[in-house]
Design a protein around this nucleic acid. Structure first.
Lengths: 339, 339
DNA sequence: TAGTAATATGGTAACGTTGAGATATATTGG
DNA sequence: CCAATATATCTCAACGTTACCATATTACTA
């Protein structure tokens, strides 16, 4: 509630001197500074953000654009961790975080455009976009055209955009090395046809480097949609995998959901985990702690990614004309009893 | 970017008239109004929030205080849905939502006080607090003392505070009725000693009303902490339940985590679900879709609760001196194959 | 036809902050 | 001791909006 004016009156100084004292810039005598700081602390002075925004013609707010998932609100857990990371870093620099949710089901164009207008209308200091499909890239471009600094949190390096990307390729590669280190030599990857390039590339890379046989099981029937279905596909795939001519002694699954299905299927069929086959999931979702045995999984460093994205954005806000580039954040294994 | 001044110049009117035209208040001729609206649309005019905040000496922002969970960030999914509900309702009235996270592990006093100072220092229009332990209630009181309108999202009716509460008692009661309607007559409740009063009260109420035998299984060993443990306790409890003198034909569990453990345990022991025993969880967390069979669960109406809390808060912002009271939001059963 | 009321518009100040300049005092160097 | 510089402070205007008041113009009423 207390303003510079209030402090100035009590200190018998001009508003301007008080302002300089508090900001620690320009000339201020030791006497004056001491007095100002004392009174400011006494009255619990806080700079008025609205006034600063007005003066600087710029809000100290960062908009974060994320999406709302399929039937229920999915992606929530991973998203939340990113929010927390972003918030922490921004807060430390006096910026606010404003969340915005895209409905992933809605027709893209009209809804997005309205939201983007709304967001840009607030003239935020910058914007963090979580996601890297074409839809999110186009948001990045819109913001760039409006001269609003933007950073993407993506799942792959995007050469032409400033982004923090979770390095899925490295994550899967590390997982293969980990399994190989545990003496597994028939390491398989279980996924869906066509939608897991980065992960499969990481798998292939490691397999090649280690000189192991490539064993890829992929399900063609997955068309997106309901999450529960993925579990069932996993159960089904477990049969295919266990009954293969050369059965693998380890499986890295495309997602925790799929891995949970695999585990359930293996158990049902009496295939011991991890003795007979080790299973690794992807994402470290909550459910990974609740399979039995507990699921070892390639964890997303969401908090870290959020922090780094905020860091990068703050840099861009200061130097809008410099490219920030792409920063990869390593994934790391969360080891539980399935391996 | 365009301001009232820009529009005024182009329309050859005073800033004041333009302002009145856009806000639709006071006297403005049809001519002037039409001209102003046309130009405003052309230049994409948006009122400057900072200027309005400054002028009104009040921010159009609502702070939301939630918590960060135990080891990893838990509560996330349920929390996220609340955020979305809050955001939707606030957005419709031109308010922003600012998230703040309390670290649930930290010593309460020092960290909270700093955060509360920070939040109050922003002079938000109001505040929504998610949680109803003493810690959250004390935040409510602090804000009330500072004349900042506050609303709690709680799990029980709190007579002395304005709150939207998820009606757990009713939720469990409905679940018992549902099971009874399906012909189950030996309906049990599985929980932990002492920490599930509302839920147990709902169970007891229904059991009494229906004249069924009360069967409560409670685990004394739970001391909070790691979520994964709850699953294991569920597995252990399943044995106790299946081996009881009079084994129940239905179990309502304290949480989805516990229910997931029960299901795993029952399956292991060859107890058919739902033929032999039906299982109902609590919260509708993501993992409820991934047990096999899928878990019927008492779902939290988080989105609704968020919306209602925002609605209530907006009311309090307009009439700060009126008590808003307590509004209950019913929980409803999400039916899957475990019943 | 004057007198009042309704309609339409404009001017000014204020919200809290900051940068650009103006002015005053203290300190240094030649 | 004077000039130049460093130090310390102040005044003013502006950011975009709105409330309050003043001033026109038009429309109604007695």
């Amino acid at each position: 509630m207390a303003s510079l004016k209030d402090i100035a009156e009590r200190a018998e100084l001009s508003i301007n001197t008080v302002s300089r004292a508090i900001r620690g810039i320009g000339y201020v005598s030791e006497d004056a500074r001491e007095k100002v700081m004392r009174i400011a602390a006494e009255v619990g002075y806080r700079p008025n953000r609205a006034a600063r925004s007005l003066r600087f013609r710029k809000n100290f707010e960062v908009a974060v654009i994320s999406f709302l998932g399929a039937d229920n609100i999915s992606g929530d857990q991973l998203m939340m961790e990113k929010f927390v990371g972003i918030k922490r870093r921004l807060g430390a620099s006096g910026y606010e975080m404003n969340l915005h949710f895209l409905d992933i089901n809605n027709d893209v164009e009209p809804a997005d455009l309205k939201l983007l207008e709304d967001i840009a209308g607030q003239s935020p200091a910058g914007i963090i976009i979580i996601g890297d499909s074409e839809r999110y890239k186009s948001i990045y471009r819109v913001m760039e055209a409006k001269k609003i600094p933007a950073v993407l949190i993506s799942y792959d390096l995007i050469p032409e955009m400033d982004c923090v990307y979770v390095d899925r390729l490295q994550g899967v590669r590390d997982a293969v090395y980990y399994l190989a280190g545990k003496g597994r030599s028939k390491i398989a990857f279980a996924g869906f046809h066509g939608i897991c390039c980065n992960r499969i590339r990481g798998y292939r890379k490691a397999i090649e480097e280690l000189g192991l046989p490539e064993m890829i099981f992929s399900e063609n029937n997955y068309s997106g949609g309901e999450l529960g279905r993925i579990f069932d596909l996993g159960v089904a795939m477990s049969g295919e995998i266990a009954g293969a001519e050369i059965p693998p002694d380890a499986v890295i699954a495309y997602s925790d959901y799929l891995a949970a299905g695999l585990i359930a299927g293996f158990r049902e069929a009496g295939v011991k985990i991890p003795d007979k086959v080790a299973v690794i999931g992807f994402d470290n979702r909550e459910l990974a702690a609740f399979t039995s045995p507990g699921l070892t999984t390639i964890a997303q460093p969401n908090f870290k990614a959020g922090e780094l994205a905020a860091e990068m954005l703050l840099g861009k806000i200061i130097k809008p004309d410099e490219r920030a580039g792409a920063v990869g954040v390593p994934m790391n294994l969360k080891i539980r009893s399935s391996t």
